[in-house]
């Protein structure tokens, strides 16, 4: 049970990481990245590191997302070649 949950979380983590890198729409990438942080937070709780999970949820999914969105809003929405 436990390892299936972990495996699913890991797979989802990998998927969000890959998607966040490949997306050309930076705002979407930020949203996916915040999902990545949430997955990470859940994984930390699974690894019995609740302090880290709390930090990841507050900073990774909360504050950095806001900062990234501000940066996207300030600069460009799309990554162009």
């Amino acid at each position: 049970m436990n390892w299936t949950v972990n495996l699913l979380l890991m797979l989802f983590l990998l998927a969000t990481a890959v998607v966040a890198i490949t997306l050309k729409d930076l705002l979407a990438a930020v949203v996916v990245f915040s999902a990545y942080s949430l997955m990470m937070a859940m994984l930390w709780t699974q690894l019995r590191a609740p302090d880290l999970a709390l930090t990841e949820a507050a900073v990774g999914a909360g504050v950095t997302t806001v900062l990234f969105i501000i940066v996207v809003y300030r600069t460009v929405r799309r990554e162009d070649r």
Binding site: D51, V63, V66
Partner: peptide, 25 residues
């Protein structure tokens, strides 16, 4: 609560600070 309750339970200053920051943002 998160800030001051970091001693007996998960949490602590930094997490609490991030929450304060997020609320004011």
């Amino acid at each position: 609560y998160t800030m001051l309750h970091g001693e007996p339970s998960p949490g602590g200053g930094f997490q609490g600070g991030a929450i304060v920051g997020a609320s004011i943002i």
